[in-house]
């Protein structure tokens, strides 16, 4: 058996971990979210959204803090109430009508498969 494939022709392979812009940022991928979801109980930084929050999130919209259990600032792995990964979000504080509110903004959600996946 000879596994010879021209690298120029390889479009994608293996677990998609994420997207790296050298020296700038790393955007974690959706398959990585599924891989890390089992670690939410111990090591990974995760939040859970309720059913309505899940719908908002998968539409690529922000979720208000009261729909997020265990809200944390910064990059987080987002789960639904069943503990299934929904993607990556970012916990932020926003000012709405002079009141500071906790928000979960989508970074990369599973709805991407419908909107952009092809």
């Amino acid at each position: 058996m000879a596994l010879r494939i021209g690298l120029d022709n390889v479009y994608s392979m293996g677990l998609y971990v994420g997207m790296m812009a050298p020296g700038r940022w790393f955007k974690p991928g959706l398959p990585l979210a599924h891989k890390l979801a089992p670690l939410c109980r111990s090591k990974a930084k995760c939040v859970k959204v309720d059913e309505a929050g899940e719908r908002f999130f998968l539409y690529g919209r922000s979720v208000m803090g009261e729909r997020v259990s265990g809200w944390k600032p910064g990059l987080v792995l987002v789960l639904n109430s069943r503990g299934e990964a929904l993607g990556w979000g970012r916990g932020t504080i926003t000012n709405i009508g002079g009141v500071k509110r906790r928000l979960l903004e989508p970074v990369w959600d599973l709805g991407w498969y419908l909107r952009r996946g092809g």
């Binding site: 494939i5 390889v10 994608s12 392979m13 293996g14």
Partner: peptide, 8 residues
Amino acid sequence: TRYIVVLG
């Protein structure tokens, strides 16, 4: 995960 997608 056990795939190589080849364009050609």
